[in-house]
Design a protein around this nucleic acid. Structure first.
Length: 436
DNA sequence: TCTGGGGTCCTAGGACCC
DNA sequence: TCTGGGGTCCTAGGACCC
């Protein structure tokens, strides 16, 4: 038995905690570069704003409908997420943090009234953290996701489902006939694992509702769509195929990619940008105690704009597996120099560290390394440790590779973030002050 | 006339997730 | 003027092995 705890309109809800005046108003949170909407309040959804709608296309709603748009404040959301997750963990013995705003809870061995317990956790998260959330409960993770979807929809659109399914929805205790009705009332595209592509194919086959999908034969599904969808169907039928992963391993790849505030056509700022991206990726790499053996650099022009298009990438092999910011920044800069061609307006670039391995099992080089040659390497890793400590204490980018250029909001390739809110919970200067 | 069978590893691309 | 970022898993096909 599983529960899924999921924050409602999470980023918007985080902002509302510190600006209650946003309650009841249409609010969106914009992606990096203020490009498009990545979170919407219910009021914004009611205005017809779609997920990932480009900002320039909905900006007119500021004037016409009182829409409020905020730049994404991921530092704030990450901190609020930690608080919410620690309370959600109280629902059962195991927890898988699945994304910034949702976690699965394993409910094995939980006794007593599950509904009551879930409502208590929900109330506690609302009161202590300020985030409204919904909880879905069922025999499998896919059904728990579905239950959560139903709990949310029932709350947002009264009448769409029986009212007792709002906020906390337990499909496991629903009588068979009621369960069927609920599955019949839910579109197949709402199922976890059914994306736009498969949704379209299923529709063409006449599979429109979750009930239609749940009644299909798993073997047929496997032949036509593969094991992934087969698992989904079995999970809808109550057979658990996807286990709770409460101790995920280290990441297999680490990326840092950004769109620029404006197109770049010269080499120098592109080198600065990818050097910085490599440095950020290296920090993440060190924090999970991994080493990279290869680094991929890419850049491309905007597919939305007219003019010549170009997309290039290059894999830079590293001489030995490393987590060193300077080595990775150098490799990224080399890769950029290698693939750069003048005459294009590049809108995005990035660095992806691939082929990661554990820092504990570093293979040394045969016969080439004497203790004397080890010395500078040890110094280098101490340098990285010092860098991480300083940046941890005084803020990101306090010390960085010189190749990233002068850090600051003025740099030519920097992001547009015109509507950023304060880091209420993680910067002393930004902590709200209460007046008597 | 006619040329095996069984396996692993790697990669690129596609699909999905939030 | 203007369209995000960071991941995962699966599959097919090719290279290679004995």
């Amino acid at each position: 038995m599983y529960a899924l705890v999921d924050g409602n309109n999470f980023y918007v809800s985080c902002e509302r905690v510190f600006r209650p005046s946003l309650n009841g108003r249409p609010v969106v949170v914009l992606s990096n570069n203020d490009g498009c909407a990545i979170a919407r309040s219910n009021e914004a959804k009611d205005l017809g704003i779609k997920m990932a709608a480009p900002w320039f296309g909905i900006k007119h709603l500021e004037q016409e409908a009182g829409l409020v748009a905020l730049s994404a404040n991921f530092t704030l959301y990450g901190d609020m997420s930690d608080r919410m997750m620690s309370l959600a963990a109280g629902l059962g013995p195991t927890q898988e943090i699945y994304s910034i705003d949702e976690s699965f809870i394993g409910l094995q061995g939980v006794r007593g009234d599950l509904m009551k317990r879930a409502r208590t956790v929900r109330e506690r998260i609302l009161q202590w953290v300020g985030i409204p959330c919904c909880i879905g409960i069922a025999q499998t993770k896919t059904l728990a996701k579905l239950a959560n979807h139903i709990a949310k929809t029932a709350e947002r659109k009264p009448g769409s489902y029986p009212s007792e399914l709002t906020q906390v929805c337990n499909l496991a205790t629903l009588p068979a006939q009621d369960l069927e009705d609920v599955l019949r009332a839910t579109e197949v595209g709402a199922v976890w694992g059914v994306g736009p592509r498969i949704d379209k194919q299923l529709q063409e086959e006449g599979v429109r509702t979750v009930l239609d999908l749940a009644r299909l034969d798993p073997a047929t599904i496997r032949r036509r769509w593969g094991v992934t969808l087969e698992r989904t169907v079995r999970e809808l039928q109550g057979q658990a195929c996807i286990e709770l992963d409460d101790a995920p391993g280290p990441k297999q790849q680490i990326a840092c990619t950004r769109s620029f505030g404006k197109p770049m056509h010269e080499l120098a700022p592109l080198i600065e940008a990818v050097s910085e991206f490599a440095g950020r990726a290296a920090e993440k790499l060190r924090s999970q105690k991994s080493l990279a053996t290869e680094l991929l650099v890419f850049m491309h022009t905007s597919p939305y704009r007219p003019g010549p298009q170009l997309s290039r990438s290059v894999v830079v092999p590293l001489r030995r597996p490393t987590d060193d910011t300077l080595a990775l920044a150098q490799a990224a800069a080399d890769g950029m120099r290698y693939m750069y061609v003048p005459g294009y307006r590049f809108i995005k670039a990035g660095v992806i560290l691939v082929d990661l391995q554990s820092a504990d099992v570093l293979q040394r080089e045969l016969d080439l390394e004497t203790p004397a040659e080890d010395e500078p390497k040890r110094n280098r890793s101490q340098l990285m440790g010092a860098m991480d400590a300083i940046n941890g204490r005084y803020g990101k980018g306090t010390v960085h590779a010189a190749s990233t250029g002068k850090v600051g909001p003025k740099r030519v390739w920097g992001m547009k973030q015109e509507r950023r809110t304060p880091q209420y919970t993680t910067r002393l200067e930004d902590v709200p002050v209460a007046r008597a």
